[in-house]
Design a binder for these strands. Structure first.
Length: 120
DNA sequence: TGGGTGACCATAG
DNA sequence: ACTATGGCCACCC
């Protein structure tokens, strides 16, 4: 068995993955943040793509990870195709009071939750 | 061992 | 206002 497969099976992730999950769990319902903001906060400002990779695997976690609250820097729901159903991300956001128009978070600037500013 | 890929992003031209 | 590029980190051949 490869090392990576073992990690996957045992839910033991790298520091990077764990930090992504930790920060994502702190996003309040009804608010959103971006891949880059999470990457910056955990000390790897240019690893935004890897944040997406981590969220892609977040469903293997025992504790719920609200991955639907993470969008790209323009407020677009670029990750929607990675949910069980493509409309699920939008539905989850709307259930928290967020208005989604054309795969875009309405009032993104106001709803944006920056971990670097909100956590200290 | 090395190259390709990706739920990204800042920068340069 | 575009497009191109380089960087990051994990993963898969």
């Amino acid at each position: 068995m490869t090392k990576s497969l073992k990690k996957f099976r045992t839910n033991e992730h790298t520091d990077f993955f764990s930090k992504v999950y930790d920060v994502t769990r702190l996003i309040p319902a009804g608010r959103v943040t971006s891949y880059g903001a999470i990457a910056s906060f955990i000390g790897s400002p240019q690893a935004a793509r890897t944040v997406g990779w981590a969220l892609n695997a977040s469903h293997t976690q025992k504790e719920f990870v609200p991955a639907h609250r993470v969008v790209n820097r323009n407020g677009m729901l670029t990750g929607k195709h990675h949910f069980r159903h493509p409309s699920l991300m939008k539905e989850l956001l709307e259930s928290e009071g967020i208005v989604v128009v054309n795969d875009h978070v309405h009032d993104f600037k106001k709803l944006f939750w920056d971990p670097a500013r909100e956590l200290k």
